[in-house]
């Protein structure tokens, strides 16, 4: 666990003595994790394969990957990992590493699922053209790069205070990666974005903070 510089920024999310892993499996981190995340900004989560990045992120989302410790959200007494789906959806948007999807669904139908939460942040048509997609394309008939952009779009549309992205620039070519990083940087002026990534070059140029996990901790 790399040290996180404790700046005088207001804290939104606090990890207290976290040990993550799978039930009946051995814990992924030997030393409990303690860190806090600010209310705004772009924070990277780095670490080698198998260091537990995804497991750590998912422990926030009601998956049973937290062996001990607690996640605390500023001003809410129930630990985040015990929140109801209704409460989670008001605060957190999430893009998994390998998103599941219905292949016959169009981009528009896929994005509509985010409207279950609240009204969209962007105009669908504008977002689609910004991401280089058309709303009527079917997910099953796209390249993996296009599909990744469609998945990202769904998360960008959902109003939230914390956006959790697991390898958001997967399958994207260099130019598109830059676009996505710039968009995220811009959004992070108003909210917190926490993303797991291997893209170290861009982490140094775009991220405000970095939390790194290593399997040797």
């Amino acid at each position: 666990m790399g040290s996180v510089e404790e700046k005088m920024k207001p804290v939104m999310l606090k990890a207290v003595q976290l040990v993550v892993g799978f039930e009946k499996g051995s814990p992924l981190n030997q030393v409990p994790l303690n860190f806090s995340l600010p209310q705004k900004g772009l924070v990277a989560l780095t670490g080698t394969n198998g260091s537990g990045k995804t497991t750590l992120l998912r422990s926030l989302l009601g998956e049973k990957t937290l062996l001990s410790g607690n996640w605390f959200w500023d001003g809410i007494s129930i630990p985040v990992q015990k929140w109801s789906a209704g409460n989670l959806s008001k605060h957190i948007a999430y893009l998994p590493q390998e998103p599941l999807y219905e292949s016959t669904q169009t981009v528009q139908d896929h994005w509509r699922l985010a409207s279950k939460v609240r009204s969209f942040r962007f105009d669908l048509q504008n977002l689609a053209s910004e991401l280089g997609l058309s709303l009527n394309q079917r997910l099953g008939e796209m390249s993996s790069g296009q599909r990744q952009r469609a998945f990202l779009g769904r998360v960008l549309l959902q109003p939230c205070q914390l956006m959790i992205l697991d390898e958001p620039t997967n399958h994207l070519d260099t130019e598109l990666k830059q676009d996505i990083w710039r968009t995220l940087k811009q959004l992070s002026q108003g909210q917190l974005i926490w993303l797991a990534t291997h893209d170290t070059e861009n982490v140094t140029s775009y991220c405000d903070e970095m939390i790194s996990l290593s399997s040797t901790i």
């Binding site: 989302l61 009601g62 789906a85 989670l88 699922l113 939460v117």
Partner: peptide
């Protein structure tokens, strides 16, 4: 039906879209 569509995206995503899987 909409809850079913959301569940199709996996349990963790479903929770962040307000559906208790």
């Amino acid at each position: 039906s909409q809850a079913l569509e959301v569940l199709r995206l996996g349990d963790a995503v479903a929770r962040t879209l307000g559906v208790a899987p």
